[in-house]
């Protein structure tokens, strides 16, 4: 303590100058460090775009964009390789479509039930159940789709292939159900009580209040829930990689098997791809398409949700 000069030990509001200087340093240091951490998340996006662009550019030097978007064959391992990405996109959209056909009505019904009908105690215990459902690993859902749901469906639908898009689509629908239901429920619960009371004052039943008042008021939030659900379905990997097969097939027929974009990436990554080969680059080209599709959905969802939050 003796080396501290009298000016240093002078107290300001009960603290020494020396301490206050050190404190101010840490205060500023922390602010920069926290900003840097926040910027890492931006760096991740930059890194993703950088990798996708640089790895798929050489691909588009060899495969024309027109062929890429119009060809209906995807045969990267053949002698005469063809790269029509729509082959993968068709399967991706088919599976996602089936998933949404399950998740939209079921999710909406569940959200209406939870936000308009269920007692708080019920709601409190259902939400954790939904979280548990959300927490099941997707490989497990894949196993279930392939070895439980497909055999089950085959007893009703004789022509159903062992690898098909129907079973993973249905399972994926259940998989994204907790997400779409809880996001729409949040949107519906954010609708001010006053609007509901106005509906009840007109003599509306609960159902009418839900369909005529709450859903229209929460529409942008509910739409966001389904768009974000769609994004998840499009990007989901393991369920389709396991249960929809890995054979690129331009089809919208759910009873057939077909490789989605994600299944293709998994399939190629499993094999030993020579770094820098056209097939290696095709993985990134396909990934780029996937990224653009999900990015579009995510941004629409983000702004719809933000608009909804601003409204209430």
């Amino acid at each position: 303590m003796s080396e501290i000069s009298s000016a240093e030990s002078e107290l300001i509001g009960g603290a020494t100058r020396q301490f206050l200087r050190r404190r101010a340093f840490w205060n500023r240091f922390a602010a920069y460090w926290l900003l840097a951490a926040a910027l890492v998340s931006v760096l991740v996006t930059v890194g993703i775009v950088y990798v996708l662009v640089t790895e798929s550019l050489p691909f588009f030097n060899q495969v024309s964009l027109v062929d890429f978007l119009t060809d209906t064959q995807w045969t990267p391992m053949f002698e005469n390789a063809r790269y029509g990405v729509m082959t993968l996109v068709s399967a991706t959209l088919t599976v996602a479509g089936i998933a949404l056909a399950v998740a939209i009505p079921a999710g909406l019904a569940l959200a209406i039930y939870l936000s308009e009908y269920a007692r708080p105690a019920v709601r409190e215990s259902v939400k954790p159940l939904l979280e548990l459902l959300e927490g099941v690993p997707t490989v497990v859902y894949g196993f279930f789709a392939l070895l439980f749901v497909t055999p089950l469906l085959q007893t009703f639908i004789p022509g159903l292939a062992g690898f098909n898009m129907l079973a993973p689509g249905l399972v994926m629908g259940i998989m994204i159900l907790p997400y779409t239901a809880s996001v729409s429920e949040d949107a519906m619960r954010a609708v001010p009580m006053g609007l509901r009371e106005a509906g009840y004052a007109l003599g509306y039943s609960r159902f009418r209040v839900a369909t005529r008042v709450v859903i229209p008021a929460a529409l942008s939030g509910i739409t966001a829930a389904f768009i974000l659900g769609m994004s998840r379905a499009v990007g989901e990997t393991m369920v389709v990689a396991i249960a929809a097969g890995q054979n690129p097939n331009f089809t919208f027929n759910p009873t057939e098997g077909a490789a989605t974009i994600t299944a293709y990436i998994v399939q190629m990554a499993m094999g030993d791809l020579p770094h820098g080969s056209l097939a290696y680059q095709s993985v990134f080209a396909a990934g780029f398409v996937l990224f653009l599709i999900t990015l579009t959905f995510n941004l629409i969802g983000f702004f719809l949700r933000r608009r909804f939050r601003e409204a209430y």
Binding site: S41, V51, L52, E55, A269, F291, N298, F302
Partner: peptide, 19 residues
């Protein structure tokens, strides 16, 4: 960016890591 990252498919992260 953070809200978009939450929606990026996990396999895209895999491609980031691979590249």
């Amino acid at each position: 960016n953070v809200s978009n990252l939450a929606g990026v498919p996990s396999i895209i992260y895999g491609l980031l890591a691979l590249g």
